[in-house]
Structure formats: structure tokens, C-alpha cells
């Protein structure tokens, strides 16, 4: 493990346990100008006079934008923990995240946690549409009208406490922050449970032939599982049909399935050791579930998932 990443990991673990928390800053790159933001950037405070804030940026991905974003992250990392949210439709992907995070001088911000998330299509927990205490509404706004079959009437939700003072509601800010604090862990846990659940018709057979799992996953009805696994192991090619298909599944199920922001964040946040566990898990999934590997055990797969989840501090859900 590198000094920088180990420091970051230790720092994060400590922060996870410590009651005294520092400022929390969200940098959200989204279509804010569509919603009425005049400049490319502004800053919103959070109810309760703390140093917490939300920074709005409307920057399409470009080399200049990347530099600007990097400078912005660096300057806010001096004030506290930073979660960066990048809109996929603005051209951001896991490579950009990797580049941004790797070029940050982690040593300089050892006291702060920096995480980067990709979001888009309205199904991530940052959106109001998914949970009524989210932050992002429709079309670059902080508000949304919620309509679904569980409600007789549409409900209008607004995350703004005071528009003139550029003040956001604390409960919305806290909710999103807490969701993303647990985001990776919850997503990995859900993948594990979904995986075993989907494989259940196959799990209790007396004899499992080599490659049977791969054959089962390849079935059309298990396509979602296949795509999620591919995303998890980093084999879902950007711009491919498969990526589009997974996005369609996200829309349909209103769940977040992509793991494109996972790998680099795990490495930066939890350190090399966890990244190593992750790599081993990916390799085991590749050979046992996505190939005809004869020597494969579901118990070992479970153990590897558990090892990874246990190494990630904090609870799975808020």
C-alpha cells in the first residue's frame, strides 16, 4: 500500500468513527444553467450555520474543464470532506474520475476524504425523484414533482430552504451525504444478495457441472445480472450497446446499477489493500461466473464478497 493511500485510508477510518466531524462539501457538476444558473459556478449554504455547502458547477467534460474541476476540488478539500458528483451526460466517465483523483495530491489532503461519483438518468440517490429527501430535482433545479402509483396526488418537493440566501434544507443535504457515505458498500452488498438470489434455482442442485453457472448467467432472462457483473469487474465498455442496455434497466427498475465510479473510489478511499481484495473478487467472478472455470465455489465467492464488505468501514445502509 502506498503511503499516500494508506494515510487516506487511515484518515477515512478515523473519520468514520469520530463523532467530531469537519465541514462537508458537495461539488455537483450538472445542467444547472438549464435550470437558471447564470454563471458556470455558484455556492449554496446549508441550514444551521455550519461550514457545509453545495457547489454547483456546469462544466461539460474537456481538458480545461478537468483542470478547473481539479482546482476546485483542491481548494474545497482544504475546507473539509468533499464528495464530487459528475453527470455522465456531461461527458464524465470512470476514466475521468480516475484521472482527476489520481492527479490530486492526496498527501496534501490527508485530513479530508475525497470521493467522486457518477450519476445520471434520475435513478441515483442524489435525485429527489428517487427519495423525497434528495437534492436534484428536474432540469437543473432543486425541486421535483413526485408522482407514482403509491400516491393519489402528486407531491411537490423542494430542497431549498431560502432561495434569496441560497440556503438548502439540512435534512436533504444530510440525507444525500449519508446515502453516498454508504453508497459503495450498499451497492456491493446488493449485488452480492441479488447475485445469489438470481442463482438460487441453480445453487441447490446436487451436482453443478463446470461452467454451468456461466451458462445460466448467459441466459437472456439473466441479462441484467450479467451486465451488473460486467460493470462491477470493469468490463462494460463505454458507449457499447451493453452499456445502453444497463442504463435502460436502471430506468426501468429505478435502481443504480453502474459500478463505473467504484474501482477508483475504493482505491482512493480505502487504500490499496481493499483495491487488491476487489481485484481478486473481480478475477474470481470473471473465471467462475463469466467463464467455464471448473474449480469454482459459491462459498469462496461469498467469503470474498464478505471480506470486501467487512473491510469497508461503516454500515451498509444509513
Amino acid at each position: 500500500m502506498s503511503t499516500a493511500s494508506s494515510k487516506a485510508a487511515v484518515s477515512d477510518n478515523l473519520k468514520g468513527e469520530n463523532a467530531s466531524r469537519q465541514n462537508r462539501i458537495m461539488i455537483v457538476v450538472w445542467s444547472w444553467q438549464y435550470g437558471g444558473m447564470k454563471e458556470y459556478k455558484d455556492e449554496w449554504a446549508i441550514e444551521g450555520n455550519s461550514g457545509d455547502k453545495l457547489v454547483r458547477l456546469d462544466l461539460k467534460m474537456s481538458p480545461e474543464a478537468k483542470d478547473l474541476l481539479q482546482q476546485t476540488i483542491q481548494s474545497y478539500a482544504q475546507q473539509g470532506d468533499v464528495f464530487v458528483f459528475l453527470h455522465r451526460r456531461h461527458g464524465y466517465n470512470q476514466k475521468n474520475i480516475k484521472a482527476i483523483l489520481e492527479q490530486l495530491n492526496v498527501d496534501a489532503y490527508a485530513e479530508s476524504t475525497i470521493r467522486c461519483f457518477l450519476f445520471g438518468e434520475g435513478n441515483d440517490k442524489i435525485y429527489i425523484v428517487n427519495q423525497s429527501k434528495g437534492l436534484l430535482g428536474t432540469r437543473g433545479s432543486f425541486s421535483a414533482k413526485l408522482e407514482d402509483d403509491t400516491r393519489d396526488q402528486a407531491i411537490y418537493i423542494n430542497a431549498i430552504a431560502n432561495e434569496e440566501e441560497k440556503l438548502l434544507k439540512r435534512k436533504h443535504f444530510d440525507f444525500v451525504w449519508n446515502q453516498y457515505s454508504h453508497n459503495f458498500k450498499a451497492k456491493i452488498f446488493e449485488l452480492k444478495e441479488d447475485l445469489f438470489h438470481s442463482l438460487s434455482p441453480f445453487l441447490f442442485l446436487k451436482e453443478i457441472q463446470a461452467g454451468a453457472a456461466y451458462n445460466y448467467i448467459k441466459l437472456n432472462e439473466n441479462q441484467l445480472l450479467m451486465l451488473r457483473l460486467l460493470s462491477f469487474i470493469g468490463k462494460l465498455r463505454k458507449g457499447s450497446n451493453l452499456e445502453t442496455k444497463l442504463r435502460e434497466f436502471e430506468q426501468q427498475d429505478r435502481r443504480s446499477y453502474f459500478f463505473d465510479d467504484c474501482h477508483i473510489n475504493l482505491k482512493i478511499t480505502y487504500g490499496e489493500q481493499l483495491a487488491h481484495v476487489y481485484n481478486e473478487l473481480c478475477a474470481y467472478i470473471s473465471k467462475g461466473l463469466l467463464a467455464y472455470e471448473p474449480d469454482f465455489s459459491f462459498q469462496i465467492l461469498r467469503d470474498q464478497f464478505d471480506e470486501m464488505l467487512q473491510a469497508m468501514a461503516g454500515s451498509t445502509y444509513d
Binding site: H197, S198, S200, P201, F202, L203, F204
Partner: peptide
């Protein structure tokens, strides 16, 4: 799905 799968056992 799961109960049906395991019912044989």
C-alpha cells in the same frame, strides 16, 4: 424464486 429453488432440498 428462492423458495421454489430450495423446495426440493
Amino acid at each position: 424464486l428462492l423458495p421454489q429453488a430450495i423446495s426440493t432440498w
